[in-house]
Design a protein around this nucleic acid. Sequence first.
DNA 1: GTATATGCAAAGGGTTTGCACGGTT
DNA 2: AACCGTGCAAACCCTTTGCATATAC
Lengths: 147, 147
Amino acid sequence: MNSDWDQRLREHGFRITPQRQLVLEAVERLRHGTPEEILIEVQRTASGVNLSTVYRTLEVLEDVGLITHAHIGHGAPTYHAVDEELHIHLVCDTCGRVSSAPGEIAKSFVEQLRSDHAFVTDISHMAIHGECESCFGVLGEDLLRSI
Amino acid sequence: MNSDWDQRLREHGFRITPQRQLVLEAVERLRHGTPEEILIEVQRTASGVNLSTVYRTLEVLEDVGLITHAHIGHGAPTYHAVDEELHIHLVCDTCGRVSSAPGEIAKSFVEQLRSDHAFVTDISHMAIHGECESCFGVLGEDLLRSI
DNA sequence: GTATATGCAAAGGGTTTGCACGGTT
DNA sequence: AACCGTGCAAACCCTTTGCATATAC
């Protein structure tokens, strides 16, 4: 686990609690987790922890820069530790499978957004939707709005 | 309005109803609208229309390829007519403002996803998050996960 | 000792569903 | 006449909030 996680919290005026440690460890162990999944993981060690605590803790851990979240679809967001390699989620709208791609593949796109639109992009925050190899062609041409 | 909207519905085995016409017109008039906003627009002409009808109708209109939706943030999705020019939503995570960029700016990114990951991308489906020009620098470096 | 964090329960937004009625075909 | 679509209300998922209690500092 990130060795100075407690420092990070203290620096920002937050207290160190077992719940905060457990949630952070759960996120790191799961690598990808929704609040609900994180709760279940935490409850393997501490069954008394509450869902609302998980929500509040995820917010705090994100505030201090220990974790991030990404929106993969219509449902709950997915949390990651920041020491995970930055990646993009590719979601197939036909079969629903989620795969990952390294963040660097968006490098030129991100640079273009910066130069042409003065916009600094967090490319991993929102998943990319479309259709994966094995489903190719299932969506009609005009339903899949490619460029 | 798309002149053959009723044909489209009939072809797919759906019936023509006043509600479906009104919802489609509302989406076209608003250009960007959440289900709630679309309901309000529809109710300007037909106050009896129900929210659940709007949801069911949006699903049908999307099925037959007359509209699409995009996820802009944590809240409700935004619906567009498909004859709108394909565009990407840029959301500033600091000030919350949403701007649009032409879909073509993602062309090389989309082509790379296709060649390297065999993934056919619908780039407009999910907004792109980051920080806009006027807010630049407010987010800490490690909070804004750029590449 | 004091302020912050937690657990619990209730409320909130957004969306879906079951059912009886009404409208389209 | 048969079936599909609608309105209404209830249920649903995910998340936030108020409040009393417990805990870190």
